[in-house]
Amino acid sequence: MGRTFLVVVGLLIMGSAAPAFAAPVTANKQAKAVVDILPPIAVRKLQDLNFATLGVVAAGTATVNPNTDVMTTTGGVTWVGGTPYSAMFEAVAPTKSVVHIRVPRASIVVTRVGGTETMIVDTFTISGAANRNVVAKEPFAFSVGGTLRVNANQAEGTYVGTFDVDLQYN
């Protein structure tokens, strides 16, 4: 008597995975790390931001316009003497590029020389465009103005503080 055997090959193929003895598959590829180092922009300060001499009878502000060097005052602050002017800078980019000029967004503190009294300078503005197309190795200038916040009963004296101007190019 003959026997009939049913061979199910399809189930064996579908259920089979990679042989248990197969080595893991790996791939390696290398990438380079590349950087271009550019020479810095040369920048120099030509003059400081100066609010001149103010008289104070109440709180107010003094604002120097960087395009005209005209100062306006509000509240109990009046201009009584001296010449107000914006800070002025000159820069030279090593290549033809777009230069991005950044002035502070935050306020800075000015402190009375020989004392502890302070005032705030904020709302810094720049003459002309903040992003400029410049020619390689040719000087360009810009001015920076701002607003001085004077307190009521502000102590008399000379007040000094510093602020940063950043230049980036690409």
Rank of each mutant, 00 (worst) to 15 (best):
N65E: 07
F51V: 03
T53Y: 02
G55E: 06
V57R: 12
T83G: 01
T72G: 08
G55W: 08
T61D: 07
W79K: 14
T72R: 06
G81I: 09
N50D: 15
A59M: 07
T61I: 01
A62K: 11
V64N: 10
T74Y: 00
T83E: 09
A62T: 11
T73D: 00
D69W: 02
L54N: 12
N67M: 12
V70N: 08
T68Y: 05
V80F: 02
V77Y: 05
A62E: 03
V64Y: 07
N65Q: 02
T53M: 08
L54A: 07
A59Q: 14
G55P: 10
N65H: 02
N50R: 11
T72Q: 12
A52L: 01
A62R: 13
V56Y: 13
A62Y: 12
V80M: 08
D69M: 02
V70M: 04
A58G: 14
G76C: 11
T68Q: 04
T53F: 05
T63S: 09
T74K: 04
V70P: 02
G55M: 00
T83N: 13
D48T: 11
L49M: 06
T83P: 04
G76F: 09
T78E: 12
T53D: 07
A58F: 12
A62I: 13
T74S: 15
V80G: 02
T78I: 13
N50G: 01
T78D: 07
V57H: 03
L49H: 12
D69Y: 04
D48S: 15
A58S: 15
L54G: 10
V70C: 00
T61V: 04
N67Y: 01
T74V: 02
T63Y: 07
T61P: 02
G55V: 05
T63G: 00
T68V: 12
G81C: 09
A62D: 06
V80E: 02
